[in-house]
């Protein structure tokens, strides 16, 4: 099978990987690079579990062709903590009980990270909009919204 070389910035580190033409960014992160923090839910852009930042913007990695990330900056949940030390957004999620089964959490964290970077003091409505593409079956969303609000006030 023909493969193509993808060079890109993954969590600020240069990364190179040989991939098939039609691989999605999600396929490459999970199956080639074994970065399994990014979750595969629906695979069709509906659930947001696979959310990563591409050049700072939240995208569903299941609907991005991996080769389109050539030379671009990708950030995943693995890039949030510094070693063993959680980021303060991650800490807020824990404090506000915004994590139950955890399946949506990486996607939620990435949508929130994208939002807070562009808009450090969002309104509740802006927070709701920013996570409107991320489904959560457990928390009822309020703890997640509270966690993001808390982080925006730190």
């Amino acid at each position: 099978m023909t493969t193509f070389t993808l060079h890109f910035w993954l969590n600020n580190q240069p990364e190179s990987v040989e991939i098939p033409l039609t691989a999605t960014l999600l396929d490459v992160l999970r199956d080639e690079l074994h970065m399994t923090g990014t979750k595969r839910g629906c695979g069709i852009g509906e659930c947001g579990a696979c959310t990563v930042l591409l050049n700072g913007q939240a995208v569903n990695s299941c609907t991005v062709l991996a080769l389109q990330a050539q030379g671009q900056k990708v950030e995943t949940v693995e890039g949030l903590a510094k070693g063993e030390e959680l980021s303060s957004l991650q800490q807020s999620f824990i404090e506000e009980h915004a994590v139950q089964c955890g399946f949506c959490t990486s996607g939620m964290l990435m949508s929130a990270t994208g939002l807070l970077r562009q808009n450090p003091h969002p309104s509740e409505k802006e927070i709701r909009t920013a996570i409107s593409g991320n489904l959560c079956r457990c928390t009822g969303y309020m703890p997640i919204i509270k966690a993001i609000e808390k982080e925006s006030k730190r």
Partner: peptide, 26 residues
């Protein structure tokens, strides 16, 4: 051709490997 891929990749996902696009332009 692929633009944002939000329609295309969902269609490609359903195709058998032999039917997936072989030549793509970004």
């Amino acid at each position: 051709m692929i633009a944002g891929g939000t329609d295309l990749l969902i269609n490609v996902r359903r195709l058998a490997p032999a039917d997936k696009p072989a030549q793509m332009v970004d």
